[in-house]
């Protein structure tokens, strides 16, 4: 654009200074922290780092993290699709309030997201005595971890789909209906193909947050090694026990998850030909 629009061309010096400053900032803010994680993990070479990852408690943490994400992500995917369909394809009273409420969990501290479930299901919570009487455990157990994770990742899918589906309108779906298609056919053959990349991107971000969540699960976990420790919690325990190489090794694994997510999201944006779900 610069060649054809000289009036909005910035002086070369300004341009050069801005680019240099940006690159230096990006280096300090984004690249150095990432590099530090891997450097700390490999401080004493590959072996101790690998050992920390294949060790039994670490493996249990990996399995638990995957399990929690495997439950939480589909719940929020189905909820998000249902919400987007209701909001984008119909008019009803209270729609704007509904959208606001769906985004609410993003402005709630992760610690509070865990706290609310302790208030409900903890030993002195509203349902605590009843749960105890029936020998059910939610807090300090898998259900608590899942609930807290569902809460913090609640809006991801809905908020990537809602604006896109609203923008795409209802005409194609209406056309499909006049051609004899039923609800499932309309969704599967008309709506889904139009939003698949955005949906995938939302699921991806939801998954990254679900696997990496710390504050909320920390409150409801009870930190029982090998049982209720997810990967991020395992990192904290190792760090507090001054097992730095182990902590950074497991952290590297999580950092890789983040990098893969970033890469996949960028790829999806190329495929979709647009920026999706601008913010998380």
């Amino acid at each position: 654009m610069s060649a054809t629009r000289p009036a909005v061309d910035d002086p070369a010096l300004l341009r050069w200074a801005a680019v240099t400053a940006t690159l230096l900032l990006a280096l300090a803010i984004f690249v150095l922290p990432l590099a530090a994680v891997f450097a700390e993990a490999l401080r004493r070479g590959w072996e101790p780092a690998l050992a920390a990852i294949v060790e039994e408690d670490a493996q249990a943490a990996v399995r638990l993290t995957l399990l929690v994400a495997l439950i939480a992500v589909p719940v929020n995917t189905i909820g998000g699709i249902a919400a987007a369909w209701a909001v984008a394809k119909f008019d009803f009273w209270g729609k704007r309030l509904l959208v606001t409420l769906i985004e609410l969990p993003f402005s709630v501290s992760p610690v509070i997201s865990g706290l609310v479930y302790v208030l409900l299901f903890g030993a002195q919570g509203y349902l605590g005595p009843w749960l105890q009487a029936n020998d059910l455990q939610i807090i300090f157990a898998l259900p608590g971890l899942v609930l807290a994770t569902v809460f913090v990742t609640f809006p991801f899918v809905a908020r990537t789909l809602i604006p896109l589906m609203q923008e795409q309108g209802r005409e194609e779906e209406e056309a499909a209906a006049t051609l004899g298609a039923g609800g499932w056919d309309i969704f599967r053959r008309v709506t889904l193909p139009n939003v698949k990349w955005a949906l995938l991107s939302g699921v991806l971000l939801c998954n990254a947050r679900a696997m990496g969540e710390f504050g909320a699960v920390s409150v409801v976990s009870g930190h029982i090694r090998g049982q209720t420790n997810t990967m991020p919690l395992h990192v904290e325990i190792l760090y507090n026990e001054y097992m730095f190489v182990g902590a950074f090794a497991v952290a590297s694994l999580l950092a890789l998850l983040g990098l893969v997510t970033l890469f996949a999201k960028a790829l999806l944006e190329v495929l979709a030909g647009r920026r999706i779900g601008a913010r998380a």
């Binding site: 005409e171 209406e174 056309a175 006049t178 051609l179 004899g180 039923g182 053959r189 139009n194």
Partner: peptide
Amino acid sequence: ARDRGVGVVFQSYALFRH
């Protein structure tokens, strides 16, 4: 709508773009 057997040509055509 799906059972009416009424053909509609929409203003913006509403073709399925995919």
